[in-house]
Amino acid sequence: MKTPPPDTFEGQILALLPSLRRYSRSLTRSDIEGEDLLQDCVEKVLARRGQWRGINLRGWVLTTMTNLYRNTRRANPRDRLVELDAAEEMADPEGQADPLERLRLEQALDSLSEEYRAVLMLVVIEGYSYNEVATMLDIPIGTVMSRLSRARQRMSEHMKADNVITLRRPK
């Protein structure tokens, strides 16, 4: 198998793959789901390359992935029940936060609807501005803001509800 030259469409997608992998995993609930979404997305953009307008390839692919994610989720509502079982091994040995904290955070994210999660991830992880997100998802900016707000509120509630009890010795 030959590596496609960097100026070809395949070459550009190949270069984007690591960041696409991060985004796909951030939308999904497990490593497997993340890889599946990534593969489906790459398959789709390769097949639909003619629709790309020649600018901002990454934005176009992320939009495609987001749509794919929402559609497949809608098609498989039972997946919503997976939650607790799907917290997988973490691929990040460097950023060793408290593993329990990480798990709680993952579970809080998994409690979000697809719409909320996509907005939150595009803003927080991918670093897009609210306006860019509105364009990418083809929704009004007011909707971006309300989804962001509700996503954060829900996350906080989830983390609070599932709070860790600190043990204290009586004095």
Binding site: M1, P4, L14, P18, R21, R25, S26, G34, G95, L120
Partner: peptide, 19 residues
């Protein structure tokens, strides 16, 4: 959230097969 997914931004041996 950033910390949670930062580790996934990596290429894999199978990437070439994907494209």
């Amino acid at each position: 959230i950033k910390n949670l997914f930062a580790g996934y931004e990596k290429s894999r041996d199978t990437d070439l097969q994907l494209v």
